[in-house]
Amino acid sequence: MTGQRVFWALVRHDMKERKQRGKYNLRIWRWVYLAIIVAVAIAVTTYLVLRRPGFDGRFVWFYTFAIPFVCAGMGTGLVAQEFRNGTAGWWLTLPYPRGRLLVSKFVACIVRALIIMVGLDALFCLLYLYTVLLQGQFTASGLADFLLTGARLNLVVLGILPFTGSVGVTYGMLRYSTLRPLVPLGWGLFGILWWFLFSNDQQFIFVHPELGGGLVAVSPWLLLPMAVGWVLAAFLLRLATRIMEKHLTL
């Protein structure tokens, strides 16, 4: 197979969720909890719509800021599962460049995060339709406003995902290396970088509670910290490759 075909085959392999050996089938419970969360969300929304006349469903889009952290967790999990499931020896002796093995996990965690985000987006759109129909206030402009808010925050998160995905993958490699003592220092650095790049949102993301034009406006200057995040992502993946080559503990 050509390098590119192998790479995408690796991504597809990494996309599959694998339960840990000897653990209960968590997938069933995940659906149970999702059903509970949806039921609670519908109940709470119904209450808010009926009891609080000023309820603004657009704020629900701020859930998207959890997605980068989900992506980091999945990046770590994809690396960790090779070691936990005893398949690391197979994975690490594949005759392909180390960087390709890691980047496939990085791409897989981003794609998985995007799939989750798209699924939740669809769920929240349905919830929005439910609330406006319950209020009897459905308008095309209101729907457009809701979708515009979601699209903007989705784009922001899309720009952040490479950074957090690379942090997750690098952290996963670090955990199984002789450099493991650096983990606390790594988390400290991640916190500082996150705050420096993205948390100062008053400069980049503006909230306009009035209707029309979307709940949030995004400054084009946000592209700057995003671009720095992409460069850092490339650096972190290079670092993770180096750890994989030289510092693994088996």
């Binding site: 050996r21 002796t93 594949l94």
Partner: peptide
């Protein structure tokens, strides 16, 4: 290294297979 592994079939110690 990974290049040499093209010609090596290696069964790791205490290895398991992908459970799914």
């Amino acid at each position: 290294g990974w290049r040499a592994n093209e010609n090596i079939a290696y069964l790791p110690d205490r290895a398991r297979w992908y459970p799914d």
